[in-house]
Structures are given as structure tokens and as C-alpha cells.
Design a protein around this nucleic acid. Structure first.
Lengths: 351, 351
DNA sequence: GTGTTCATTGCACACGTGTGCAATCTGATT
DNA sequence: AATCAGATTGCACACGTGTGCAATGAACAC
């Protein structure tokens, strides 16, 4: 409820609760501009007035109104963070670093859920209303017409682990291909000769690259006839699916795999758990298992999974970097960054 | 970089990119007020003009500037969500529902990390700058002087699973006491006679209540000398700690517990895993284990943990409810809500 | 035809801030 | 002492929106 002008004098002294720069100025005996400049980095204020202002501000409990500041320069310091649901452990582990690196640049994350694809467009529209300074997409292909709008408005967009198919959008990816290759080489050096790539039907860019890296490293020996390998499609990439896969993978005694590369850790952990139920099947002696992501669960002694580690901190840092650099220089050509991965050897593979 | 007035006519036609209500008004041939009213629920606009405006808005890609709206009514529709780090699986599972229920009321979560206690005060100060419509605290005791400031500014604050020791702040808690009692009764009915409450040193309100409920339910039989029980303090409440606890708990063959209540699931899962390494110790035959929280990991077949389920959706919904009600009626007396818990029986207890 | 009620519309002000411009002040140099 | 350069300050405008108030117009009853 806005105050009518004629009543304003009655309420301006207190009550309205929110302390404004004008209040501080009055208390400190300076102009409102001085207050503004005190709280603006790089502005010209004498030490004396700055001191007076800060003293008064502290006494009154003044906080700069970021909304007003944002409107004035017609851009907020909010960054939209779009996630697909909150169930995926890997995306969860991305959230902390993103928040951290945004905070380092005094940006704040505005969380948006786009679990259903239809929601994504709405999320992006909502973010537009907040005049976000940028957007980090951890999933979902942005609707093309909205992407153009973002581009036209010069709002930086950065995507993590997504296909670099959108012009003008920075992409930060783990080196999924190399990760797949690492997994393949580890399995081979561990003695595996009948290999399986356990894949899920959601054919994401990351998953595809992992598979490509895996099979590329297998190709020479496969062509020489020294190993066999096949891809097994599961249901959704869940723990339960991985658990169930143990049954089917080892059902045929004549065709038992001795090395399995899972497209991600959730699937792999389920598989490890599932193999425990099977008689005479010791991991890693009878069969090695390698996962991907290195989510916290993979490190637990219940699974102790050998896996390909994604550097979530570097992913987050690079994405935020892309945003801030593009904020300063909107015309900058789009980049595609590769973040190195590394193999973490635990108990589901020898050594 | 703001445009100088004399150049404005050169740029106003396009370029500035952001479409304002004035642009829409011009295109639709109506006043700017009409545009504003079209996008304000409950305002008075004729169907004819509303239609013209919406058509023009769509054509120009107009999005209401929420920052400007917020400033005008001197309150944003951002809600601060303060979490302590992003590692705790239970808090992670709270994030989704909170976002969801906020979105239902067209509020957006502004994430703030307060992993170090010192950060908490800063987080709350930052939120003040955003003129947040409310704050949800999932951890950390708010500094008393800042709390007063929030109270004075009539900013609703809701806490989840915290001690209701702050006046004027709504608190939503799971019924930890009853949860502890449920665990005790389950263990007793399963035949346990030498009980242990596995606690962590972080003496949070939730943990204390769980312990109190547990011991209260044990008291009668303990006084009758029919059972024994003790509290065992571990290190930090982590998986590794729980894993290690298995060794020490069963070290003395003369004093082996046959029923253990863990203060949370992470600890319990570690313990379950740890007991697997011990010879001749079958869960649940030799020893039952009950956890608390029902985090996703507890349901995995690797642990299949009997545990006390917290209704995260109800917790989130209630917290958001408290906020919105208090936004409408700031003077409302503070409430303390109890959310029922329920026992989820899995494989670490009989039946 | 006249008077009355009510929905609709436009004007203008307010929200709280950053900042260009001109005026003023400070201190050093000639 | 006079001059000048540079630092500091205040004024006023702009950011984009919501809304009270008065004016306009339509619909309706007599």
C-alpha cells in the first residue's frame, strides 16, 4: 500500500522501516549522492565523508537496495541456474560450486526447475523477467526462439555438459570422450576381453561422447579379434536399473562380460550392488566395473567404484567465467571448453 | 552505460533491446497504464484493450520487468533460502520441494550458502539487499541482532527443523521426538535388549529431540532392568564415521548391542556397510539398525535401511505456507508446526 | 430526453538508486 | 598573493513499473 503524498510527512520519520540512502544522507549531513558514491566501488568520495556516511549507515542499518541499483543500470546481478529436477546426484554436486563461484563475483543464483521439457521455456521466460545477468543451463536444449531472444538481448548463456550446437552460447564440457577412453584402457589393462558398454536410452551428448571414446579405444583390438564388445541398453539410468542389469548381463554363462563400462555412476553403483547377489561372481576378479562422474556415492566403501572423475569445481568456475567475460564483452565469439577428467581407481578394478 | 538524453531518440527505436511497457503501449495505441494493468492481476482493463495489448506484447516479446515492479511496491518476490553447504543429502532433498512450492506462488528461491557460521550473517545481510519477501532457514541460528532487523522490517522468517527459540519466527519441524520413539518401539518389538543410540557431536535440536524420544520410550523397560541402553558419541556425522563405528561398537564381545538407533541415515548407512565386514554379525538377526531421515540412499538395496521417514514435501509446503501467510498478515503470532513422521521398515529390522 | 451508476482510461507521482555535469573546494606551484 | 589543476560535492535526470485520482464514456432507469 503506497503512501499518499500528503500523509508522507507523517510516516517518513520511521515506520516505513526500510532505510534509504536519503535517510542516511540526512543523518550524516551530506547529499544523497555522497551516500550512493560511498557504496559504489570506484566512485569519488573523500575519506572524511565516506567515514561519516559509513558511520550513519551502520547506525541506521542501511542496506543498498540492489533492486533499485539493478533497475538503474537495467541489469540485475542474478544469474539463472536451470536444472532438470533435483534428483540427479551429479547435478546436485554442481550446485554448490556454482553458487560459490557466483558469490565470488557478487552474483546470486536464481534457481529454476525444468524437470519437464515444457517447463524449460517457462523458466527461461521467467528469468527474462528478472533481467538476469546470465544463465547457466545444466540440462535441456533451449528453445530456439528463446535462445535468439537471449542472444539479441546480449544475455550470456553458458551450458555445462551439453552439445555445442547453439551459436553464440559458451559450452563447458568434461572431456567425455577421453573419459570413455580412460575407462576402456583401464579395463583392457586389467585383463578384460569381453566388454560391455552399459548405456541408458536418454541419448544425451555426454553419454554419446563417452560411448564414442570407449569404443574408439577398443577398436584396434576388436578388429584384431582379440576382444569382443557390445552395447547394452538399459531402462532409465537409475540405481534400480543397474541393479537389475546384473541379472541379465550374466544370465548367459557362455557370454559373460569381464569388463563393464557404465555410462554413469548411479547405474554403476546399482550394478555393483546387483552383482553382489550373484554366486561366484567376484568384482573385480571375475568382472571389472568402471563408472563415470565420481559422485559422492561412488566413494563409499559399499561400492568403492572405479570411475572417471569430473572436476565439478572447474566446470562451475569455467561456466561462471564465461558468463562474466561475456558480460563485459558481449560480442565475444562463443567458446567450447574442455575440462580434463581423470580416472579414480578403487576396488571394482585391479590395482 | 546509460544513454545521454540527447542521444536517446537515436536509440529508442530499437537497439536498447529491452522492450518496455511504453514500447508496447505505443505499438498497441494505448496508454502505458493500460499495459501495466493488463499484466497486473485484478486491475481494470476492458477486454478489447487487454487483447490489443497482449497481441502487441507478444509481437514485441515484452516481459514485465520484475525488478521495477518490485521496487515500486518495495518488495521483491524473491525468497532467501539459506543452506549450510550442499553436502547433506537430507537438505538436498529439501531443495526441490522448496523450489516447487515457492514457484506455485510465483516466488523464486535465492540460494545462499552459510557453510561457515560466519557466512550466515553475511548471507542474511545480502538477502536484505535484495528486499526478499521472506527467508527460509534450513540451518544455523540466525544472529540475534539481524533477526531483530528482519522482525522490524516485517520480513517473514521460517525455519525448518530448528529449535523454536526465536520469538516471531515460524518453525516447521518433523516430529523428531515421535520418530525416536518409533525407532525405540521397533527395536524392542524386534527383540533388541542391548540398545545403543549412535549420536554425533553436533548437538542440533533435531538430534536432541530424536534422542529424547528414543530414551523416553526405553525408560520403563530400562527401569525394570529388562533392557540396557547407552549413548555412543561418534565423530562428525558422516558415512566414514558410521563405518568405523561398527568396529568399536562390537569390539567387546561381552557387550554387543543388538539394536542400534542412528541419529541420521548417513551414519546408519555407514554402519550397515561397516557391519558387513564383521564376521558372524548378521543384520538384522544379530543386530537391528534403524536410521532417521529416509534419504534416497537408505532405500537402495545395498543398505535397505529401516528408518524414520521425514515428509520433505510437507516440510517445504508448510514453511512456504508460513511465509506467505505472514506476508499477508505480518503481525500474526509465531507458530510451531509438527510434521508427522512414519517408520519405513526395510531389511535392517525384522518383518 | 435526462439523470445516475459504473467501468475504463490517462495523467502524474512514487519507488531507490547511479551518474553526467557544473560548481565548489583543496592544495600546490609560480 | 595569485593561479591553476585536480579532487569532491550537489543537482537533476533516468531506469520501468504500479496506482490514486479525476475525467471520460457507456449503459441503463425514469
Amino acid at each position: 500500500m503506497r503512501q499518499h503524498p500528503k500523509f508522507q510527512s507523517m510516516t517518513s520519520d520511521n515506520n516505513s522501516a526500510w532505510v534509504t540512502a536519503a535517510d542516511v544522507a540526512r543523518a550524516a549531513g551530506v547529499s544523497r549522492s555522497a551516500v550512493s558514491r560511498t557504496f559504489t566501488t570506484g566512485a569519488s568520495v573523500s575519506p572524511a565523508t565516506r567515514d561519516k556516511v559509513q558511520r550513519a549507515a551502520k547506525a541506521l542499518g542501511y542496506q543498498v537496495n540492489i533492486l533499485a541499483r539493478s533497475m538503474n543500470q537495467s541489469q540485475s546481478n542474478l544469474v539463472g541456474v536451470v536444472v532438470k529436477g533435483f534428483d540427479d546426484p551429479f547435478l546436485q554436486s554442481l550446485l554448490g560450486p556454482i553458487t560459490h563461484h557466483l558469490a565470488l563475483r557478487s552474483l546470486a543464483p536464481l534457481l529454476m526447475d525444468a524437470s519437464e521439457p515444457a517447463k524449460l521455456a517457462n523458466s527461461l521466460r521467467h528469468l527474462l523477467q528478472y533481467r538476469v545477468a546470465g544463465v547457466i543451463l545444466t540440462s535441456g536444449k533451449p528453445p530456439i526462439e528463446l535462445a535468439k531472444q537471449y542472444l539479441r538481448l546480449r544475455i550470456p548463456v553458458a551450458m555445462i555438459n551439453r552439445a555445442p550446437d547453439l551459436k553464440g552460447v559458451d559450452v563447458v564440457n568434461s572431456d567425455h570422450f577421453e573419459g570413455g577412453a580412460l575407462a576402456a584402457r583401464k579395463l583392457l589393462s586389467g585383463g578384460a576381453r569381453n566388454l560391455v558398454f552399459l548405456d541408458a536410452p536418454t541419448a544425451t551428448f555426454s553419454a554419446r561422447r563417452r560411448g564414442e571414446g570407449f569404443t574408439a579405444s577398443l577398436a584396434p583390438m576388436a578388429q584384431a579379434g582379440r576382444i569382443t564388445w557390445r552395447t547394452v541398453q538399459t531402462g532409465a539410468a537409475t540405481y534400480a536399473t543397474g541393479f537389475a542389469a546384473a541379472q541379465t548381463l550374466f544370465a548367459d554363462p557362455k557370454q559373460r562380460p569381464d569388463g563393464i563400462f557404465c555410462v554413469n555412476d548411479v547405474l554403476a553403483c546399482g550394478l555393483v550392488d546387483g552383482t553382489r547377489q550373484l554366486p561366484n561372481l567376484h568384482v573385480p576378479q571375475a568382472c571389472q566395473i568402471v563408472g563415470f562422474d565420481d559422485i559422492p556415492m561412488a566413494g563409499l566403501s559399499a561400492f568403492s567404484l572405479t570411475t572417471v572423475h569430473q572436476d565439478v569445481d572447474a566446470l562451475a568456475r569455467s561456466a561462471v567465467n564465461c558468463l562474466t567475460e561475456r558480460m563485459l564483452n558481449p560480442g565475444m565469439p562463443a567458446r567450447t571448453l574442455q575440462i580434463p577428467v581423470k580416472l579414480v581407481v578403487r576396488s571394482t578394478s585391479p590395482d
